[in-house]
Design a protein around this nucleic acid. Structure first.
Lengths: 213, 213
DNA sequence: GTCTATATCCAGATAGAC
DNA sequence: GTCTATCTGGATATAGAC
């Protein structure tokens, strides 16, 4: 029965197999708990090949970072293409990140956690990527148009993407069973319109209760 | 000159020295990159003592977790004591977390990052602590009173604490030079009242642009 | 309880055949 | 370019003196 004979279904190139295996293992177990031997087994490759292609474990991590940075940039670009308006662009980026988290959790996990997880300092982080820079520019444009509050860079970023990123973290940590997209509308609403039922609810409290300086 | 003779200025108990040293090293470099030898040196203790007290590196991590969980719970309790109103309680907890991040960055870093950073799965996380449970109850109470939007647990938590936690992360990652407290009012405002200048700005976009299902 | 010296193990890296 | 076999360093952990 030669038509059933598919004993070696590995059409992927070897370096791609290595990266895929390493990404999954790193995201699941963390850079330092994963040994090259594990990667070797999961990728069905020899140790020698790994060293030939990437020069070692750190080399794999570096290549993975470049890879996920490109993916992230594409998500941002896709989100930007959806509309001219910064608010809608940010909303679309969040939607894409949510779907991406559900479909490719290891990539998002690597983007978000890898730096803290393991690699030494002075390693590039997500904040150094072109995707993040594009987001910063969207926010600036939104402020110029008067859509977003005129807050400083990090505050504005946190206020727009903080809730969504926290949802992603919790989903990756296994605290949320639901697909993230199902929560999208709620997250967008609270992000853009606030977590309270009425605008000014917090300010009235702040005025009533004299806080200690 | 016996009055100058203070060659051994270590009034702290030995296990406390070990924990302090380990906390700093773990937060800075990550669990797996820190060796027991480093902890030994920084704490001015012998390896034998470390094994006597904690049974190894994982034992230290476990003890540290219990310790920071207690600190976190105290922060939440202090924040709750400030007011009866959930909105004000959450605002105060965020303020305390901000000041705590600036004064004790290693503790906050450990709380936020340690799980991803290193320890294996099935390790307790911040979400299992009494402090987090108290926060969940505050949110529920706020929803019952009609202050917070009636969103499900994780969405509500993310919408209220997501921006602040992102600020803390960025501060710990060295992306924010400013003390966090200086950004407190902006974060609270955007959290509770939204990141946009007008309520409903996002919804109008969503209606205008037919999103692909 | 605290220390030093030592044993054991295993991950990262290399050498060289094919 | 891919593989197997091997080397080496360093980390965890232990044994036993004090």
């Amino acid at each position: 029965m030669p038509y059933l004979k598919k004993p070696n279904p590995t059409p992927e190139p070897i370096d791609c197999r290595i990266l895929t295996a390493a990404l999954e293992l790193f995201a699941k177990n963390g850079f330092h708990t994963v040994s090259i031997h594990q990667i070797q087994v999961q990728a069905s490759v020899s140790i020698g090949s790994i060293y030939n292609h990437f020069g070692g474990k750190e080399g794999i991590a570096k290549a993975l970072f470049d890879h996920v940075a490109i993916e992230f940039d594409e998500v941002v670009q896709d989100g930007m293409a959806m509309s001219e308006k910064p608010v809608a662009q940010c909303a679309e980026i969040i939607r894409l990140l949510f779907t991406y988290t559900d479909s490719h959790p290891y990539i998002i996990s690597y983007i978000l956690n890898m730096r803290h997880a393991d690699l030494l300092a002075n390693q590039p982080s997500i904040y150094d990527t072109s995707g993040f820079i594009k987001i910063s520019e969207i926010i600036k444009e939104g402020q110029a148009r008067g859509e977003f509050l005129p807050l400083n860079d990090s505050v504005a970023f946190s206020s727009i993407f903080g809730s969504a990123l926290r949802m992603i973290q919790m989903r990756l940590d296994g605290l949320i069973e639901q697909p993230l997209v199902e929560t999208l509308d709620d997250i967008l609403m609270s992000t853009f319109d606030g977590a309270c039922t009425e605008k000014g609810l917090f300010m009235s409290h702040a005025l009533n209760s004299e806080r200690v300086a």
